[in-house]
Design a protein around this nucleic acid. Structure first.
Lengths: 350, 350
DNA sequence: TGAGTTTGCTAAAACGATTGAGCGACAGTG
DNA sequence: CACTGTCGCTCAATCGTTTTAGCAAACTCA
């Protein structure tokens, strides 16, 4: 069965297509209720909804937004950004056209072009993780950067507040009574922005608490469980009086490695060692034993924010500035008070 | 700067819009090379690309496909289906409009409507995991089901071959020499389709190998590490001569729980116990220690297949039948030969 | 030379909505 | 009664393409 057009409805209701359009869009109050009712009845009856393509051509607005990302879709990591974007789009009657460029510049250029050709009303340019990008050319006017910031401003951007997140993590540890707190960092080059920022937060809280930072407590490893494990081994090899009682890990996967390292020495978490991670990756943080206390990346909220400003339903408090989104702490069971004695902890598990 | 239209190019090249269109679409061989070159030069110069909305209206084809899913985007699980769909779409010059319904029937209905209004050329209806769904009404003609099968046929569908996948997993264990192989199943009600199918594969291979199935070796637990752990505990509590030497776990998360249970008894994997999982969830399978041998769900391939048939660039070998996609085994380090003796394995770790 | 064919292009009609201008009927007013 | 306003609707243009039909000139051939 072919689609029903506005002219079909018009014929059925005995009016012109103009009238149908006017009624369907509530655009002319002068049309008497009876006629409105008649039109609406006909439309419902026939299951009419306007063809978006035709409408788009006429109104120059398609009720779609483009979402281009480097690898958001193919990776488990940041799906909730997409969910946030999606939800906002739906709330405002928009559809989202997603294109995952696989971080290929040619694909990206082509995608942006294609989205422009499709007349998306807005574009959100998303990255997998917090980074600085050189904004591609020919971006639509309404473009918002998500989880990345363009080198040259000009478009709104939202990223996680990694510094504050780092501070939150460390503050949790300090509040539990720890004073020897290590930062299990990544050793990638160039260092991810998040790394430096979280470290800043770490130092800030140490300063707040009057704890002198010990360079030996800042270790690095690959971004993986294995990397976290070997970095943690370095820490646990320190002499008793310098060994940390708590770890702030760059992310949950590295924290998982820290668990392994601790377990291999018979250390109990959190009795002998407290750990806080970052990212709140369900599959790892919640499944660890004990479940990991961690700082969540506000992916969903960032996705919402970006889409709201792209759609123009929200204006940045401080246009021009990069919006920092708060990273909340998720308390689970990997943080406790430091062990009473500095002595060698039991090698037996309870 | 406003978009450049075909009429701008026509003016610049000193021809009519018809000619420009004809040239751009290679539709009339009678236009002499010089004119073609002139038109193309003008178009390139001005950066002209046709407005997809206008073209869509005229040609009744938008070069977009709709992808509606229950929760594919918001969950780490099946992102690669999306990637497969995306890649195929791009290869054929299409864009994908994604809508995640959150498994809400109203949202779904509305989304399908909206996609139809936008005149998507095809629709793929994706599910998070292999299930039977009652196909919603008013689906576009070119609809394909992905990772689910409609109760009433009528549209092509593709799902993983869970039975064969189960067989593959168990065959791996049999090949390593195991004879007492347990199936750590899920205990959800109703049981997921995959559960029954994988169990069938399990039984099939046992039969092949002349091994009598032992009902005590079929245990169940919640779909989580905790569930896997407690189910495994049941198994490890069995008397020595009935205790399994190998586990086939319903999925990787449960396998992770099995690791925990094994470790708590001082069992080494794979020396004392071999384990194979299912799903190949990177974050868990690859990060376990030792890395988990598992059977992969062919999400990417299914996404590709579904999109190819939706786009009409591939026709199902057997239209009407549900396409079963092979689940390949990913060999890592959690499978080894059974322990030489049936005696009590060491409680010390190496 | 004239008829037919080919060449090189264009006019104009779609596609299906939205929307500003406007028209006829009627009511109200002076 | 003439004039103005309002009401209830419609006309027709428009958005930017694609595509069919076809025109005029050049060419071919008998």
């Amino acid at each position: 069965m072919p689609r029903v057009r506005i002219s079909d409805v018009a014929a059925a209701a005995g009016v012109s297509t103009s009238t149908v359009s006017l009624v369907m869009n509530d655009r002319d109050a002068r049309i008497p209720p009876e006629t409105q009712a008649r039109v609406r009845a006909a439309a419902d009856e026939m299951g009419y909804t306007p063809n978006s393509v035709a409408r788009g051509l006429r109104t120059q607005t398609t009720r779609t937004i483009g979402l281009v990302s480097d690898t958001i879709a193919t990776t488990p990591y940041a799906g909730r950004m997409l969910a946030g974007a999606q939800d906002v789009a739906r709330e405002h009657g928009h559809l989202v056209i997603l294109v995952d460029t696989g971080a290929d510049a040619d694909v990206e250029r082509e995608a942006i072009r294609a989205l422009a050709d499709h007349q998306v009303d807005a574009l959100v340019y998303a990255c997998m993780w917090h980074q600085v990008v050189s904004a591609p050319d020919h971006l639509p006017a309404r473009t918002v950067f998500l989880d990345c910031r363009p080198v040259d401003a000009g478009h709104p951007a939202v990223v996680p507040d990694d510094r504050a997140g780092g501070a939150t993590a460390v503050r949790e540890l300090v509040a539990a009574g720890h004073r020897r707190i290590a930062f299990v960092d990544v050793d990638e080059a160039p260092a991810p922005i998040a790394s430096g920022l979280r470290f800043e937060g770490y130092l800030e809280v140490l300063r707040e608490a009057g704890i002198a930072p010990d360079p030996a407590l800042h270790v690095r490893g690959a971004v993986s469980a294995a990397g976290g494990r070997s970095a943690t081994d370095l820490l646990l090899d320190l002499p008793d009086d310098r060994r940390p009682t708590a770890l702030f890990c760059f992310n949950d996967r590295m924290a998982a490695g820290a668990y392994v390292a601790a377990r291999h020495r018979g250390l109990d978490i959190p009795r002998d060692l407290s750990i806080v991670g970052f990212d709140d990756q369900q599959l790892v943080a919640a499944e660890l034993d004990p479940p990991l206390t961690t700082v969540a990346l506000p992916h969903y909220e960032m996705g919402r924010w970006a889409t709201e400003v792209a759609l123009g339903v929200r204006t940045p408090d401080d246009p021009g500035a990069v919006r920092l989104m708060e990273c909340p702490i998720i308390r689970r069971d990997s943080v406790g008070p430091p062990p009473a004695t500095g002595g060698d902890p039991s090698r037996r598990r309870t």
